[in-house]
Design a protein around this nucleic acid. Structure first.
Lengths: 158, 158
DNA sequence: CAGAATTAAATGCGTTTGCAAATATCCCGG
DNA sequence: CCGGGATATTTGCAAACGCATTTAATTCTG
């Protein structure tokens, strides 16, 4: 089967090797990163979608919910429910868009910024561990490649 | 708040910028990659955990379930149930380990290889799109950095 | 070598998720 | 300016998930 595939012109996962297949490595790394963070978040009454919404909102002002869903990498229905909770806890506010009453803009509150501030050190620590021993120029090249990849994904919209 | 953080010596997410924060970019990219794949998988009666198990098993022979969980980046309890389904569909076989009767080794069947073969082209296509326009040496450097990162998180076990 | 502690895997259970459908609003062609 | 189609968000619902616990077997310790 593997041989058939290769003859057809498409190298199989076996030929590439798990440890050389970038999407595998990225899932593996982010799986750990996210699982680690989730444990920390639980102690603060946060979930991954809630934290991601706060993270984006700490940087982007008053996006529409559908934009926030893209930035935060959360399904819109999941985000909708996460925002219910965040609003109930006073960490964000929803406001109907001025020019389009279907749409909703989301604002972070001071309490929301404080909540994100409380987890940021753990995120930064996980980040630091991840890149430990990797020199600055290599980090920059890595991020530059990621940015190209994001551009590709956006363009092709998958 | 942001200023307080910086004064304390820790740059905030605002200073770094979402688009320069590697974990954010990686989550963003893999979020799309995984969501896209999930849609393709649904048509084949597969879920992400089932596909990941098959992917790893197509490359690693007869791992223990706990090893498979690590390689496949799936919670052990989730994997246990995914394996129930895969076994029911004849795509894998579970076998008690010879030297330790608590442990179970998992084997992929020919049908399992075929099932993975059916989705691999889509995975490969998503991979190709992701790295479109990125030259070979840059890809190699990127993967090398990922391998270092995986080493870091493994060593520190988070 | 008994029994405590550890490890592997499966399972119970409440929560979360994602898809699809519903609801509400907007935009455009005729 | 009316109706059909598009768009923004929410919600219903069944499936999936993850944590904690259970069951079973192994290993360590005194």
């Amino acid at each position: 089967m593997t041989d058939q595939r290769r003859i057809a012109g498409l190298p199989g996962l076996g030929e590439i090797g798990l440890g050389n297949f970038a999407p595998y490595l990225m899932n593996r790394i982010m799986g750990r990163y996210n699982a680690s963070l989730r444990a920390d978040l639980a102690g603060l009454g946060l979930t991954t979608p809630k934290m991601r919404a706060l993270a984006v909102l700490s940087v982007i002002d008053a996006p529409l919910i559908r934009e926030l869903a893209v930035y935060a990498v959360v399904e819109q229905s999941t985000l909708s429910r996460a925002l219910d909770q965040l609003a109930g806890e006073g960490l964000i506010q929803r406001e109907t868009d001025a020019g389009d009453s279907r749409a909703t803009r989301v604002h972070i509150t001071e309490a929301g910024r404080a909540a994100f501030g409380a987890i940021w050190p753990q995120m930064a620590a996980a980040y630091a561990r991840m890149f430990q021993g990797i020199p600055e120029d290599e980090r920059r090249a890595f991020v530059a490649t990621l940015q190209k990849m994001l551009g590709n994904i956006r363009k092709h919209d998958f």
